[in-house]
Simulated assay, not measured.
Amino acid sequence: MEIKVKVWIEDENRNLIFGSGKTEILNQIDQTGSIAKAAQNVGMNYKKAWSHIKILEEYIEDDLVLTKKGRAEDSGSKLTLKAKELMKLYKTLDEDIKEYSQKRFKELFLDRESDIVKESKNV
């Protein structure tokens, strides 16, 4: 037996604001320097990837991705420091919640499983 946990952040209207999908898009943009390549790498079309970025930027009221068109060396897409900070915070939250979930699951189910088995045999 094992526990699975998925972490995401919603607004007060239950709209998805941030989670593993948006984090992965941002991570891919950071690695590839391209929204199109990032979208392709996560199996999403460009328009949807750009939409995810815009929703998040609108909610936090700050730029996350800076784009520069052209073929110059500095063209393409780059993450802002705010985007990198947001990704880092989400990763920390996600890891903390999963770590706690694993610990608590073990306490409630796995550590007690042998006690439950012993009790049922004594009945």
Rank of each mutant, 00 (worst) to 15 (best):
E2M: 04
K4P: 01
V5L: 00
V5Q: 00
E10T: 14
E12A: 11
N13F: 11
R14I: 03
N15Y: 11
L16M: 11
I17Q: 02
F18M: 00
S20A: 14
G21C: 03
G21R: 14
K22C: 09
K22L: 06
T23P: 01
N27A: 11
N27C: 03
Q28F: 06
Q31G: 08
Q31K: 15
T32N: 13
T32V: 01
G33M: 01
I35R: 10
K37T: 09
K37D: 15
A38V: 04
N41S: 15
K47C: 01
K48Q: 10
W50I: 03
S51K: 12
H52P: 01
K54V: 14
K54A: 11
I55N: 15
L56K: 05
E57D: 01
E58Q: 13
I60H: 05
D62W: 05
D63E: 14
L64H: 10
V65M: 00
K68E: 13
K68S: 09
G70K: 06
G70A: 02
D74F: 07
S75Q: 06
S77E: 07
L79D: 00
T80A: 00
L81R: 09
K82F: 08
K82N: 10
A83P: 08
A83M: 05
K84F: 08
E85Q: 08
E85R: 06
M87W: 07
Y90S: 00
K91P: 02
D94P: 01
D94M: 02
D94H: 13
D94R: 15
E95M: 07
I97T: 11
K98N: 03
K98R: 15
E99T: 15
Y100I: 09
Y100C: 01
Q102A: 09
K103I: 12
R104T: 12
F105Y: 15
K106S: 14
E107F: 05
L108V: 10
F109P: 04
D111M: 06
D111E: 15
D115Y: 04
I116T: 00
K118F: 11
E119G: 03
S120M: 14
